[in-house]
């Protein structure tokens, strides 16, 4: 099974410079945080969907679809309870808070999608190098990339471990909630221990290859901002500037909504 997050395609988005992608990722956050009204979030949603399709990252979203569904449902419920409206919809729900819950849910899924696009289209090394060129210290960048790298390792060892315990008769799909939680212990302990063991070897291998031997290090990868990068960046900046202007002018807010 392939547990890698990075998708080895060669789409337009893959070819962009990591700095462009990181900037767009950050700008996306600003753009989606500006509005309370889901309708005003539609343009960003459209661009993120476009990126998902072009880059093929939608495949990775499909892999985490269960988590997304759980998050969507709980967020829809919670944001209804944590905000107040004035126009009744049904039972205790109000129209304004219902809209707002949609907007917040959208915000969450869009953030996850934007992050997924970034790591599905950018190699770990490119991401680190991009962050360093943007001013982050090497060690911090390396720590981030190591954390990302652990995800597929843990996923694949979890799979093996759950198979091992299932063949011993562990049945994860039945029993009460408490029983089910208890049943995860036979999975968690081995996952934890094998991850620690792996990390230990990883650490030794790193040092053995001279990690941190010199103050400065070189990079074999070469980053280059091309015409496409500047065009995409210019568009993204204009888009966010426009969004900010609209937001300041008072558009995209929900009248009659009280947030806690």
């Amino acid at each position: 099974m392939n547990a890698e997050i990075y998708l080895d395609n060669n789409s337009f988005i893959h070819r962009l410079d990591p700095r462009t992608k990181i900037t767009i990722f950050l700008l996306t956050f600003i753009a989606i945080l500006l509005f309370e009204d889901p309708l005003w979030m539609m343009p960003v949603t459209f661009f993120i969907l476009l990126q998902l399709v072009i880059s093929g990252s939608i495949h990775n979203l499909r892999r985490i679809r269960y988590i997304l569904i759980v998050l969507t449902i709980s967020s829809l419920v919670l944001w209804n309870l944590f905000s107040k409206g004035i126009t009744p919809l049904f039972w205790i729900f109000k129209v304004e808070s219902f809209y707002f819950s949609i907007a917040r849910t959208l915000l969450m899924t869009l953030m996850i999608s934007a992050g997924m696009i970034l790591i599905s289209t950018t190699r770990n090394e490119e991401l680190v190098l991009g962050m360093i060129r943007m001013g982050m210290p090497y060690r911090v960048g390396f720590a981030i990339s190591t954390a990302l790298r652990l995800v597929p390792t843990i996923a694949s060892s979890t799979q093996t471990i759950s198979q091992a315990q299932r063949s011993r008769g562990l049945d994860l799909d039945s029993g009460s909630l408490v029983e089910r939680v208890r049943k995860f212990l036979p999975l968690l302990v081995p996952v934890f221990i094998s991850t620690i063991r792996n990390t230990n070897i990883f650490g030794m291998a790193l040092e053995s290859k001279g990690f941190g031997a010199r103050e400065k290090r070189t990079f074999y990868l070469k980053l280059e901002m091309k015409k496409a990068d500047y065009l995409v960046l210019a568009f993204a900046i204009l888009f966010v500037a426009a969004s900010i202007t609209f937001s300041i002018m008072g558009y995209g807010q929900i009248a009659g909504l009280t947030r806690f």
Binding site: F202, A205, L206, K209, Y220
Partner: peptide, 17 residues
Amino acid sequence: FSTNVELEVAFGPENFA
């Protein structure tokens, strides 16, 4: 720990600038 074969080989020399 790298994402492609070339970069794996590059990692050591990079550390030694």
